[in-house]
Design a protein around this nucleic acid. Structure first.
Length: 554
RNA sequence: GCGCCCGUAGCUCAGCUGGAUAGAGCACCAGACUACGAAUCUGGGGGCCGCAAGUUCGAAUCUUGCCGGGCGCACCA
């Protein structure tokens, strides 16, 4: 509808300019928005307010001139008013809305797929938790946000790849190896102290038991360093497999898992360092090798190679991001926990230093989840080894509810998640509110089928019976879906979909309480069936974009 | 000390990239099923949009400074 109005206004503006009623040098961009108050019509523009200064006319005068120049041969506009300081408010005719519904139905499952991306390639990297233990609830939020973002970008016409970066090299795997070895030796009856910095979780002991049962005392006499490396790898692989299982149960899958170890072994780090050296962004000091990140907006320079000859994690990360860019992605998006925010300028500066446009790199920060049970905070900590895993949450409240909750906030806002409340309220929560709307529509069609009513085919003539405020409101709601998808993709804010879908469901429940779809009036029945079919389709699409199921029955 | 994020109804949060009388859910109060599922609907009370300046036709939204909360500031990962 916006597009149609835009066309009318563009033509009107040109005519008004030619006749001298709209004295501006250049035709301004026409911005159309939905007014907050329904009393202000369906759509409004502030064009007269914006151009008043340049045109040296009062906004209202300009608005009147523009309105007078509008030519509306198809009868789209029912009413147009100049209001307040100079807004122009448009109310569309029911006939126009009916045509709009027919068009939406004609688009079918493609509806709400604005071609914003035009096939451009985007990589979304998310979760990327170290394979040193199970995913916890914070990773769950990252998974929900990253996956929903990927789905939204796909809907908006981008060619999206989902990627998980596996930190399977370096200190943390060594720590894991030492932890498992200690537990293993303890099981084998060898008195061994558990490392101070070891991972205390029960899963470490379980892994050790598994190895002991499988391999017996095989590792007892193996050289310490060798055993630590080997056991670390075994358990890391095991953990990664568990992570993939948990993610699968959560409805999240990846196109690729990129291994840090493989990256290093392939010489990618040397390649990246070489590129940085060529560009003069590297220097030696205090026995270490440094990157001049402060030349590119970072607080200070960062070490790439430590004085003991070890590569830093950052060096591997530079190599990894370089590899992504060289792989031909137009945009790379990282979804990180907000506690890593200090890392953003560093990585961005490395991208710039390597001669790539830093605008191709975006980071979506996901804030912490404040987990409670009956209002009491649930302590989370690697050190204490107590944390709630994603699997536990999914088992307790279900994947749909968890995903929906994770996406009910802007990702950069803290999220309170009360397990007990989520479980208890599972009969009356926003997820079911939306799913119930979908289910109710399925029920309408079941009823229609029982009565032998065949679903009519869609065209504007078939829906002329839709006249009530609730019906037109629903169409208006449906009409804005593509804009919501576009905005969500543009701003990387998948939570907008969740809010939209709740609002649409609310609009539907209101309609449902007031009007019957299956009636004695065949024409009205046909029209309403088409309307709710469109509503069902859009709710289904919206839920699909955030990875939540749309059930026929609940 | 420096940096990033947040501060909107009793609680949890939206607010469409600067618009008109600031919204929703929960909670509380009062109503609605002999018809497509009441997991629903209708009505009601509730607000110095943290505080103070600035930018302009116009600010919850942009700028600056304070106040409060969270998170970061390693030759860690």
């Amino acid at each position: 509808m916006k597009a149609e109005l835009q066309e009318l206004l563009r033509a009107a503006l040109a005519r008004a300019k030619d006749s001298g009623a709209f004295p501006v040098e250049e035709l301004p961009e026409i911005r159309i928005e939905e007014p907050r108050e329904t009393g202000y019509g369906d759509l409004a523009t502030n064009i007269a307010l914006v151009t008043a200064k340049a045109a040296r006319r009062s906004p209202r005068e300009l608005a009147e001139a523009l309105v007078a120049a509008i030519d509306d041969p198809d009868g789209i506009i029912e009413k147009v008013e100049v209001a307040g300081p100079g807004f122009i408010n448009f109310t569309f005719s029911n006939a126009a809305w009916q045509r709009r519904l027919a068009a939406i139905l004609a688009e079918g499952e493609n509806y709400g797929s604005p071609d914003l991306g035009k096939g451009r390639r985007v990589q979304v990297e998310f979760v990327s938790a170290n394979p040193t233990g199970p995913l916890h609830i914070g990773h769950g939020r990252g998974a929900a946000v990253g996956d929903a973002l990927a789905r939204v970008l796909e809907a908006a016409g981008y060619d999206v790849k989902r990627e998980y970066y596996v930190n399977d090299a370096g200190v943390q795997i060594n720590t894991l190896g030492r932890s498992v070895r200690a537990r293993y030796l303890q099981l084998a009856g060898v008195d061994t102290p558990f490392p101070d910095d070891g991972y205390p979780g029960d899963y470490v002991t379980e892994s050790a038991r598994g190895i002991f049962e499988r391999d017996g005392r095989k590792w007892v006499d193996v050289d310490v360093d060798e055993a630590v490396v080997a056991l670390g790898r075994i358990v890391a692989d095991e953990q990664l497999a568990g992570i993939r299982t948990d993610l699968h149960a959560f409805g999240v899958s990846f196109d690729g898992f990129s291994s840090e170890r493989a990256l290093c072994e392939a010489g990618a780090v040397e390649h990246a360092l070489e590129r940085l050296r060529e560009r003069g962004c590297v220097y030696d000091a205090d026995g270490a090798v440094w990157f001049r990140s402060s030349d590119f907006g970072d607080d200070k320079d960062r070490p790439l190679i430590k004085s003991d000859g070890q590569l830093t994690y950052f060096a591997a990360d530079i190599a990894y991001h370089l590899k992504k860019l060289e792989a031909g992605f137009d945009t790379i998006i990282d979804v990180w926990g907000a506690d890593h925010h200090g890392y953003v300028p560093r990585v961005r500066s490395s991208i710039q230093a390597l001669g790539h446009d830093p605008a191709r790199f975006a980071v979506l920060l996901v804030q912490m989840v404040n987990l409670t049970r009956d209002g009491e905070p649930v302590r989370m900590g690697k050190r204490t080894g107590t944390f709630i895993t994603l699997k536990e949450v999914v088992d307790e409240v279900g994947a749909d509810l968890a995903r929906f909750f994770f996406l009910m906030r802007k990702s950069d806002a803290h999220l309170d998640f009360d397990l007990e409340l989520a479980r208890r309220q599972s009969a009356e929560n926003p997820v079911f509110y939306v799913q119930y709307a979908y289910t109710r529509i399925a029920g309408i069609f079941r009823q229609a089928t029982e009565k032998g009513i065949v679903e009519p085919s869609a065209d504007a003539a078939a829906v002329t019976a839709l006249q009530t405020e609730e019906e037109i409101s629903l169409i208006r709601m449906l009409d804005s879906f593509p804009d919501v998808v576009e905005a969500a993709a543009d701003t990387l804010e998948p939570h907008r979909i969740v809010f939209y879908v709740q609002k649409l469901a609310g609009e539907f429940h209101r309609f449902y309480a007031r009007h019957r779809c299956v009636t004695e009036d065949a024409e009205l029945t046909a029209a309403r069936l088409l309307l709710v079919r469109a509503v069902q389709m859009v709710i289904g699409r919206g839920l699909g974009l955030v990875g939540v199921n749309a059930p026929e029955r609940m």
